[in-house]
Design a protein around this nucleic acid. Sequence first.
DNA 1: TAGATTGTTAATCGATTAACAATC
DNA 2: TAGATTGTTAATCGATTAACAATC
Lengths: 220, 220
Amino acid sequence: MIYIPFVVLERLKEYRKILLSLDSEYVTSEEIAKLAGVSSDLVRRDFTYLKTTGQRKKGYNRIALLTELDETFAVRRNLNIIVVGGGRLGQALATYDGFSSCGVRVVAIFDSNSENVGNFVEDLVILNLEQSILRRVLNRFFVSIAAVCVSAESAQEVVNLLVENGITGIWNFTPVKLVVPENVVVVDADITSSLLTLKRLVDKRLSQETKVADASTLES
Amino acid sequence: MIYIPFVVLERLKEYRKILLSLDSEYVTSEEIAKLAGVSSDLVRRDFTYLKTTGQRKKGYNRIALLTELDETFAVRRNLNIIVVGGGRLGQALATYDGFSSCGVRVVAIFDSNSENVGNFVEDLVILNLEQSILRRVLNRFFVSIAAVCVSAESAQEVVNLLVENGITGIWNFTPVKLVVPENVVVVDADITSSLLTLKRLVDKRLSQETKVADASTLES
DNA sequence: TAGATTGTTAATCGATTAACAATC
DNA sequence: TAGATTGTTAATCGATTAACAATC
């Protein structure tokens, strides 16, 4: 597996999304660049981390690029995960359409609230988050990844239980900074981060508008 | 508003999360650095973008730092948004606990599926996504931001409608690359991006394990 | 052919780290 | 005081851009 710098990976994901939105046979670095908001030089430079090469005057074969990007992100490789937390978010996640096209399968959904246990979320029954059941599911389906959608208050406790029972990857949908052993990986996915980006953008725009208004006032 | 580079903003969000997870009066750059997985030099350098200064031998006042970070991300400033899409994800978002502490209020939830219209999501009724109703809500509550949680298929169409009616900020929960006019901002929030990060990490770990296994095989 | 586009080298720019004086 | 920690300067490192030869 070739090492690819973090910033490049982030852009490759964006290029992938762009390629999925197009439908022509060939795309040029310039086309991709425009949609991604970067320079075409950067796009070509990023593609040097891939094996796929372009054709002069034509550009890159869109499907070939997509295929390699899917390999880069292991899209085709099947991955079984569990969802922990049977609230609205957990349910939304457990039934997320996009998983099938990314090789992800939710094999079970857990909740520690006995009110939710036993309820159906489409064709999955919410299981009691309890050591023996958890272990059986993890072994049976070779699960090492858990999507954690519980309340902020119980997040760390739940994660501890998961880790004790062999989970080595946490997909963290809570806003909590989780503490885990070295061998466990946390990928943060809660919306706070993008929310703060949004709020700063709105705030920036407001202050710019104020500036513009001030300027016009001065001019008049 | 002081300009802060993108990468620094991303780290500031992480520091904020870390500071929220601690409870001491003072924190040192070293403590934060350890939890964030960066060097303490970098933390101090990042803090030069803020007005808050530390105290030698003591570190930084945690609350003072948090207060300034909250200002940086406009956490206290109230922002009214609408949620578009009344499915599981839309419902999860409309009832998201974290909004209140970030100054965000969901003032309405829309859906174009007549089956969902009229249903309650806690104390909000799902409204019909229709121009006249939309306009009235946007004017009444001074809304410029819409969280879009509709299906991938209808995403672009829905966004067009929103933009035509004055929405200038899209919080995009669909995996679609949206096309919008220049004056409209899109902040992507769908989980595909973090999912691909997760899958690559898992894949990397698997290939490392294979390598280790190979090595031991060779040794034996 | 001429024009368009890739792929790559060299130059620039920006971000991180190393180092350390200041000082609580 | 001595030790710990900040804040900043200088050195390094890495990432982006500029430029252009190759060529379809």
